[in-house]
Every structure is written in structure tokens, then in C-alpha cells.
Amino acid sequence: MFVSLAVVTVFMSALLLVSAGAKSLRTRHITEQMSTLGVPQGMMAFLIGAQIAGAAGVIAGLWWGPVGIAAAIGLALYFAGAVAFHLRVSGGGPHHGLRRPDRIACCHPLTADSRSGARLDRAG
């Protein structure tokens, strides 16, 4: 079980570091997206640091649990803020993709699959 945890943790940390690297390069695509979302340019260094600290924290959490828990909480807050910025820009109306119950339901493994009506059970 630890091997699975380690593989997923390293993969997620690598994705976070790639994202932080892309933000640090400040490519046109990234800067346009951030300005569309209303993220100030001065906040970019904080966002990059949060991603790097989160990646390092979850890796360190493989050996010392409290650090991993703190990093996971920090990353959850980071991504909650990202969702909030995206919803704020899109208006978050009733036809927004994230607000549709069937989209939320199909993302959670213990809920009904909206396309087939099948329920995913733990006991197969």
C-alpha cells in the first residue's frame, strides 16, 4: 500500500512542479490566463512558492505524517482558491459545468454514474 501512496505522491508532486515551472517562465498563455482570472502579477511568486512547498511537503509527508497533512491542507486551500477564481470569472451560473450535479456525481467514486445509472460499489 505504501508503494501505491508513494507513486501517486511523486506523480502529483511532479505535476505541481511542472505547473510551478510554467508559472515561473511567465509564458504568454499563463500570463493571459492569470490576467483573465484577475490574479495580480504580484501574486505569481506566492502561487509558485505554494506549489513548490506543497510538492515538497507531500513528499516529506511520506516519512513524517504531520508535514504531509499540513502540505495537503495547504494544497487543498490553493486549489479551492483556484476554483473560486474560475467560478468568479465564469459567473458560476446554473449552466456552469462545475455546478451540474451529474458532473459532480460522476467525479466521486461512491456516487451514481450519471451516464449509465450504475452504482459503483466497494464490494465487487
Rank of each mutant, 00 (worst) to 15 (best):
I30T: 03
A112N: 05
V18C: 05
S35T: 11
V10N: 00
T27E: 05
Q41Y: 08
P66Y: 06
G91A: 06
G57N: 04
A71E: 01
A56I: 01
P66W: 10
D102A: 10
Q41N: 13
H96C: 13
G81P: 04
V8S: 12
I59L: 15
R28T: 08
A14F: 14
M44A: 08
A72W: 02
I104F: 07
L98Q: 09
W63T: 05
L5N: 12
A45G: 03
Q51R: 09
W64N: 02
K23E: 06
V3R: 14
G49P: 02
F85L: 12
G38T: 04
P109N: 03
V39Q: 01
D121W: 14
G92C: 06
T111K: 12
A55E: 02
H108N: 07
L15M: 14
E32S: 13
L37V: 02
T9G: 02
Y78T: 02
L110H: 12
A80V: 06
V67W: 00
I30P: 01
F85N: 02
A22T: 03
V83H: 07
Q51P: 02
D121E: 06
A6K: 11
A72E: 04
A70F: 10
R88H: 14
L110M: 12
F46H: 08
A14D: 09
A71L: 04
G61D: 01
G68H: 03
T9A: 10
I69Q: 04
A112P: 03
H96W: 07
L25P: 01
S13M: 09
S4I: 10
F46A: 13
S24C: 13
A50R: 00
P40Y: 05
A60K: 03
I69A: 10
S116D: 06
G124M: 08
A70G: 08
V83L: 12
P66N: 06
M1N: 05
H95S: 11
F46K: 03
C106D: 07
G49V: 03
L75G: 00
T27N: 11
M12L: 13
I52M: 10
A118N: 11
F46I: 15
G124P: 07
L87F: 04
Q41H: 13
L15Q: 08
F2L: 12
T111Y: 04
A76H: 03
S4A: 12
V89Y: 13
V58A: 00
K23G: 01
A55Y: 02
D121T: 11
G74I: 01
C107H: 12
L16Q: 01
C106S: 09
R100T: 03
R119D: 00
H96L: 05
R103A: 10
G117Y: 05
A53I: 09
Y78I: 04
S19G: 08
Q41R: 15
V67L: 15
G97S: 12
S4H: 07
A72S: 14
S4L: 09
V89L: 13
L120Q: 09
G68T: 01
S114T: 04
G57P: 00
K23F: 13
F11Y: 14
A50W: 07
Q41P: 07
A82Y: 04
M34Y: 13
F2N: 09
I104H: 01
F11T: 09
I69T: 05
